[in-house]
């Protein structure tokens, strides 16, 4: 089939539609009466809920920090976790701005990149977690101390300082210094730009699901459409 034949087939299709396609007027009336909500609305409220959880975590950590300010092991751990939740919170706010500013009359590549970014939200978390690998001891340090402060007998001696035999600082500094290169390397690798690498594809799928992997693949396709000669 030649191109002119395809075009003339399309014209036939146009004429058929012109002759028999009808729109239900009552539905258009409902739309213009603004009785229909956007399908992005649930996503917006999910991000709001996430932001509230992140703020609650930060509030808990600030209280923890105030109570344990004089003990550097706890205050340093709490501060690094506050930094973690702060980055996550900023990310949620950024996503809310994208949703609010979503204007479908922009070009396809721009809008679809924004939407794919929203879909790949869990990938941002996965990247953040690997970036915080060097501060991995902070989480058990804070959690065990908080449980200990609840005076539960079975947790009486189960704080990280006791568990590391008083060498918490040595363990922390050693873990941080040795894991910084790994954290930074993983953070840079876990991007849609590296989807051609099998381990990156597998990691994204296992940590964030198939949907996120597909969104990342779409981001890569859009990026190449916009910026590369095809």
């Amino acid at each position: 089939m030649e191109l002119n034949e395809i075009k003339s087939l399309w014209e036939v299709y146009d004429k058929k539609l012109e002759a028999s396609l009808k729109l239900n007027q009552r539905f258009i009336d409902l739309i213009v009466a603004e009785k229909v909500r956007s399908s992005l609305a649930p996503l917006f409220w999910r991000r709001i809920a996430e932001g509230i959880v992140q703020l609650a975590c930060m509030a808990f950590l600030v209280v923890f920090l105030c109570r344990n300010f004089s003990e550097p092991a706890y205050s340093v751990s709490a501060l690094s976790l506050i930094a973690f939740y702060m980055v996550a919170f900023i990310n949620s706010i950024r996503q809310l701005v994208i949703i609010k500013r979503m204007d479908y009359s922009n070009d396809i590549v721009t809008i679809q990149s924004g939407l794919a970014m929203l879909q790949a939200h869990n990938l941002d978390y996965a990247r953040m977690v690997v970036l915080f690998i060097p501060a991995c001891l902070a989480f058990p340090t804070v959690v065990l101390k908080a449980i200990k402060d609840l005076h539960i007998d079975s947790f009486a001696n189960k704080d990280m300082i006791t568990l590391t035999g008083g060498h918490w600082w040595t363990a922390q500094v050693a873990a941080t210094l040795s894991l910084i290169p790994l954290g930074l390397w993983c953070y840079n690798q876990l991007s849609y730009k590296n989807l051609h690498k099998k381990w990156v594809r597998n990691f994204i799928q296992r940590s964030s699901g198939k949907r996120v992997r597909k969104a990342a693949e779409f981001m890569k396709e859009l990026h190449s459409l916009k910026f590369e000669a095809i």
Binding site: L21, K22, L23, N24, R26, F27, L30, V36, S39
Partner: peptide, 13 residues
């Protein structure tokens, strides 16, 4: 489905 209206919006046989 998020159809808010039980009738079809597009009618084409």
């Amino acid at each position: 489905h998020r159809t808010i209206y039980s009738e079809n919006l597009l009618i084409f046989e």
